[in-house]
């Protein structure tokens, strides 16, 4: 039987930091979404309603 390798582990503090980083990343992705949406509206300008349905 092969010897079990040590398992990398995160401390409670590491996990807390990871959660905070993840929340910030989620906010950044949401901001990106909003930025692309607003930019699309700005670039389409007054022609926003001129589309083929």
């Amino acid at each position: 039987m092969s010897e079990q390798k040590p398992v990398p582990a995160f401390t409670a503090e590491d996990l807390k930091r990871r959660k905070k980083r993840s929340i910030i990343m989620a906010w950044c992705l949401a901001a990106l979404l909003v930025i692309v949406f607003i930019t699309t509206i700005v670039k389409m300008g007054a022609h926003i309603a001129d589309r083929v349905i």
């Binding site: 079990q4 990398p8 401390t11 590491d14 930091r17 905070k20 980083r21 910030i24």
Partner: peptide
């Protein structure tokens, strides 16, 4: 069985 995780320690 445990080694401290390499990386993932940085704060925001």
């Amino acid at each position: 069985d445990v080694i401290l995780a390499p990386g993932g320690q940085g704060t925001a």
